[in-house]
């Protein structure tokens, strides 16, 4: 019976040789691939560079465009703020870094100046409204995405700013008034649990204010961070 590769010592030699050849071929292919990817990457980089420089103004001014751009960056694993140089070559290219940091500073400004009345918790939409007011821009120019991104850039400072997902957190949307019966009714919690939660918010965390003149329940709790303040 004839077997591919034969038998005996000769077969062993042949086998080794074949392996060597495969290894050579494989590294050759890898090299070609790396070269290819390299050239692709540098092409991509040039293209991106051109794109960013051409559309720099639009990226900064148009929220939809900026969002799409950032989406594109994150989907290909490029962080617009990261880079080898100070501030990131990328950031320098688009000037997005400054913009983002600037927004960050304004966010801190608002958080600090509203901390007393909201106990350090502010609704994202309210924050956006105030930031827009501070910058004197129309609503819609600064998006939720921008704010979240800016808050992330603040992380290394250890200032403790973070976005908390309130878990379907729109529950405060209809108003900032909460009462025991409302929680019992809407969430099916026991009266004790509702009371404990509200008392903790009120006394321990200072996140809500007490209203003893409530028409409905006699006692209601108000969450100032969910209120809109004109002045």
């Amino acid at each position: 019976m004839h077997r591919l590769g034969g038998v005996g010592m000769a077969a062993f030699d042949r086998h080794q040789q074949a392996q060597r050849s495969f290894a050579e071929l494989s590294s050759e292919i890898s090299q070609t691939q790396i070269d290819y990817v390299d050239s692709q990457l540098s092409q991509f980089r040039t293209a991106l560079y051109r794109f960013a420089t051409t559309h720099r103004k639009k990226i900064r001014d148009d929220p939809n465009f900026r969002h799409a751009f950032q989406q594109m960056c994150s989907s290909i694993g490029v962080d617009p703020l990261a880079g080898p140089r100070k501030g990131g070559w990328w950031a320098e290219l688009v000037g997005l870094g400054d913009w983002q940091y600037e927004l960050g500073v304004q966010i801190v400004d608002i958080c600090v100046s509203t901390r007393e009345r909201n106990g350090g918790l502010i609704e994202l939409s309210e924050l956006i409204r105030l930031v827009s007011k501070l910058r004197g821009v129309e609503s819609g120019v600064i998006t939720q995405d921008d704010v979240i991104r800016s808050i992330k850039t603040l992380e290394p400072l250890g200032a403790g700013y973070q976005v908390i997902d309130m878990g379907g957190g729109r529950k405060m949307e209809n108003g900032s008034r909460v009462s025991e019966d409302l929680i019992v009714q809407k969430k099916g919690w026991s009266v004790e649990r509702s009371r404990a939660a509200l008392e903790n918010m009120l006394l321990r965390d200072g996140l809500c204010w007490l209203d003893e003149q409530d028409e409905g329940s006699g006692t209601a709790y108000w969450v100032p961070s969910a209120m809109q303040w004109d002045i």
């Binding site: 009120l202 204010w209 007490l210 209203d211 003893e212 003149q213 209601a220």
Partner: peptide, 16 residues
């Protein structure tokens, strides 16, 4: 703040 209902209640939390 004058139109915030809880503004008219004395708050149990000293900071508030």
């Amino acid at each position: 703040i004058h139109s915030a209902p809880p503004f008219f209640t004395q708050q149990p939390n000293p900071n508030t």
